[in-house]
């Protein structure tokens, strides 16, 4: 008989992690472990494949449909692989007014991607997202879990260049109330000048 190669279950070699997550919830609320399990898989693999969905369903005694239902409710979970750098442009009102559309256009032109796509190399994914909750520093670009605030064209160029070298630069923090739209924060004491 030919033995087919099957993917190893994700949690097969992580019994402690699995037990730790399941242990957070009482027995009757076992299904609550769904979100943390999805998150573990996504953190490691950058998306949750159908095989992983089935595996999680099996662990929690749910159907794959239910897992997919929960997963699809949250836009943070991905059903398709995303690039190593997941560029998420806030497209809600404050950022729109501060130029998020132009920012998206510029990223589209530079990367040759439309929102929702990943490049062939698997480096960049571009996505428009809803409010990132940082309206005071609009427009905001979130790369993986890092916020880049008040990003202008020059910032984007610098950021993309760094990421092409596989460096994720420290974000430049901008103080609230600073009306200078682009560029690094003004040195302390100069703002009143």
């Amino acid at each position: 008989m030919i033995e087919l190669q099957t993917a190893r279950p994700f949690f097969e070699d992580k019994p402690e992690l699995l037990q730790e997550i399941l242990g957070r919830y009482p027995d009757y609320g076992r299904r609550s472990a769904l979100m943390p399990l999805l998150w573990e898989v996504q953190r490691a693999e950058r998306y949750v494949s159908e095989a992983r969905i089935a595996e999680i369903a099996d662990i929690l005694d749910l159907t794959a449909t239910e897992v997919r239902g929960v997963m699809s409710f949250y836009s943070t979970y991905h059903g398709e692989p995303v690039g190593r750098y997941h560029l998420q442009v806030c497209a809600t009102l404050s950022c729109k007014l501060a130029g998020a559309d132009q920012l998206t256009d510029y990223l589209e032109d530079t990367l040759g991607l439309v929102p929702g796509e990943t490049d062939a190399e698997g480096r960049f994914s571009l996505q428009k997202v809803e409010c990132l909750g940082s309206c005071t520093t609009a427009p905001v670009l979130q790369v993986n879990d890092t916020y880049y605030e008040r990003v202008g064209r020059a910032d984007v160029d610098a950021l993309l260049a760094a990421m092409k070298e596989d460096v994720l630069p420290e974000p430049a923090r901008v103080r609230a109330g600073d009306n200078e739209r682009y560029g690094p924060a003004a040195p302390a004491g100069e703002e009143d000048a």
Partner: peptide, 10 residues
């Protein structure tokens, strides 16, 4: 008791 259908997306 067969949960084979669900809302997808939001």
């Amino acid at each position: 008791g067969d949960e084979v259908l669900d809302f997808i997306e939001r």
